[in-house]
């Protein structure tokens, strides 16, 4: 294939990757930004979203689109509820001590992953796309559904931006992020805000997973990869910076596709991971962020 179309395809793939990554990493970033908690179990919420989507679509068997719509509603809610419970039962009791919460979320990672193994089984499960059409470019074909994923992700991000920037809920969140104690003094129920933010963070991961699961399969071990990628994105973007996270997700998504055109993908992954570690060491506010860690 010629270079032009090659680049075009890599860009399309990069956009899909970036879309999913934006949503997943945004959840992680939100939780860190407001609560200062690094949630190592974030990838498992993503996995749960995919698994629940499979479960819902296999029960609602009328038409793939109906099942998918149901999954898009149910999976994030269920995942949010689980995250909410986890926050109340575990993280709250640790008083959000950073190191203790990391250990606790590692524990949650195993618990969620192994519960999925118990109740869902070890097999990868396909979910049928709500609709499927193939776009034939002159040089190659492409899944139309993938482009829908990009569009849906953009729509969700816009809604999220609106909620955070323009509504009272967003104001409360931002106030809590800015200074928890003062927010508390002004009558903001910081505790409930934390639990809700943790749940919402998990829901972002779940939504991303529902969107992507018709392309990939639901599998109980699928959580690790998005976790590491989200870490990379959130660090590059500056921990807690939402704008930085989105810029970084697009950058990582696109470059991941394009770099692997020129280099071995394993080498590309090594390079990007190393780069991220060095960014965290030498520029802890991230490449785009302004906030201090």
């Amino acid at each position: 294939m010629d270079f032009g179309p090659f680049l075009f395809l890599a860009t399309l793939e990069g956009l899909v990757q970036a879309a999913v990554l934006c949503l997943t990493a945004l959840g992680l970033s939100l939780v860190f930004g407001v609560m200062r908690v690094v949630n190592v179990a974030h990838g498992e919420f993503y996995m749960l979203g995919a698994v629940i989507a499979w479960w819902v679509t296999s029960i609602v068997g009328i038409h793939p689109a109906v099942g998918f719509a149901a999954a898009l509603a149910i999976a994030p809610l269920a995942v949010g509820a689980i995250a909410f419970a986890g926050e109340r039962l575990i993280l709250k009791r640790l008083d959000y001590n950073p190191e203790a919460t990391i250990v606790a979320t590692i524990g949650m990672l195993y618990v969620i992953q192994q519960m999925a193994l118990l109740f869902f089984g070890p097999d990868p499960r396909p979910v049928e796309a709500p609709f499927y059409f193939r776009i034939q470019f002159p040089w190659f074909g492409y899944s139309g559904y993938k482009l829908i994923v990009v569009a849906a992700a953009i729509a969700i991000l816009l809604i999220a931006w609106f909620v955070i920037a323009k509504t009272r809920i967003g104001l409360v969140m931002r106030a809590t992020q800015f200074d928890g104690d003062t927010a508390q003094a002004f009558g903001i129920p910081v505790n409930r805000v934390y639990a809700s933010v943790f749940a919402v963070g998990a829901m972002f991961a779940a939504v991303a997973a529902v969107l992507i699961v018709p392309i990939r399969q639901a599998h109980y071990l699928m959580g690790l990869d998005p976790l590491l990628l989200s870490f990379i994105v959130v660090i590059l973007g500056g921990l807690g910076s939402i704008r930085g996270t989105i810029v970084a997700a697009i950058l990582i998504g696109l470059s991941d596709g394009i770099i692997s055109v020129f280099f071995s993908p394993t080498l590309a992954k090594m390079a990007s991971t190393l780069l991220v570690a060095l960014v965290l060491v030498f520029r802890p506010q991230g490449l785009f962020g302004r906030e201090e860690l």
């Binding site: 090659f6 395809l9 793939e13 492409y142 990869d225 596709g257 692997s260 055109v261 071995s264 394993t266």
Partner: peptide, 15 residues
């Protein structure tokens, strides 16, 4: 060659 950690493949096909 596809790396063992890979979960999407389309970008390899142009090669």
């Amino acid at each position: 060659p596809i790396p063992p950690t890979e979960s999407s493949f389309t970008r390899y096909f142009p090669r």
